[in-house]
């Protein structure tokens, strides 16, 4: 009986959150996105800021309805600008958490999402990039990567999860080189960030939020990598190995 009640609590809170996610978008944010579409010069900036506002409000609601979970996002992470951010990936919450942390944010999204009506259009207008391994989407990829250097120089962040998929057991999987390749292309620093416990709140493969446990979700910096990309001895795989070591906490930032 107690278990049934707990499951019901999870269900009710999940329903509140997803109702806000969908309803908040349709009733409030869709009109803002529509109006912002007419900001021709800075349309992508306006969309990124709206994405940020939408997910900030989502996480404010999440913190309110799930008070047992505490959140610690370091000031160092909040202050990141003009960087390629890489992080471990535990939950569907991770990318939207990053969108909520940075007013200027871009990321790489699965190509299929660009085909979803409205959602795909927002992704494209926001300047997000289709996943690299896909055959199509080359035009968007070329356009967005071409703009990335200026975007980062102006204070924007590109965040990516180099594992490419959520970890089921907390261990860090193999890295894809896309994030590192873009950092080199843009001569940008790499900020290594470690996320903890989002997978406990919203585990992969589950529809319901886990709202009954007490734990802390943290987002912390594990250091900055500023390689000399022009150096003759520069190696992308060595840079990836170094980033991995930082992420795993096997050396001091």
């Amino acid at each position: 009986m107690v278990n049934v009640l707990k499951r019901l609590a999870d269900f009710a809170i999940t329903a509140i959150l997803w109702t806000y996610y969908i309803g908040g978008f349709i009733l409030v944010f869709s009109s803002l996105y529509f109006v912002s579409f007419f900001f021709r010069d800075k349309r992508d900036v306006a969309y990124q800021q709206l994405n940020n506002l939408f997910f900030r409000s989502f996480f404010a609601l999440l913190r309110t309805v799930v008070p047992r979970v505490t959140w610690q996002v370091s000031d160092e992470v909040r202050a990141i600008r003009s960087s390629v951010i890489i992080a471990n990936h535990l939950s569907f919450l991770d990318p939207i958490l990053f969108v909520s942390l940075f007013a200027r944010q871009k990321t790489v999204v699965k190509k299929d999402y660009f085909r979803v009506p409205v959602f795909g259009w927002i992704l494209e207008t926001s300047g997000y990039i289709p996943a690299f391994t896909e055959d199509s989407g080359a035009e968007i990829l070329l356009e967005q990567v071409g703009k990335m250097k200026t975007y980062l120089a102006e204070g924007g962040n590109l965040f990516m999860f180099p594992e490419g998929t959520r970890s089921r057991d907390g261990r860090i999987g193999a890295f894809d080189r896309g994030a590192f390749r873009i950092a080199k292309f843009c001569d940008a620093p790499i900020r290594v960030v470690v996320i903890r416990n989002t997978g406990r709140l919203y585990p992969p493969g589950r529809f319901l939020f886990n709202t009954r446990e007490r734990f802390t979700i943290s987002v912390e910096s594990a250091g900055t990598l500023t390689p000399d990309y022009a150096d003759e001895t520069f190696s992308l795989s060595a840079l990836m190995a170094k980033a991995r070591t930082r992420m795993e906490g096997r050396d001091n930032p």
Partner: peptide, 8 residues
Amino acid sequence: FDSIDAVE
């Protein structure tokens, strides 16, 4: 070798 490598 993926699309981002092609850009490089």
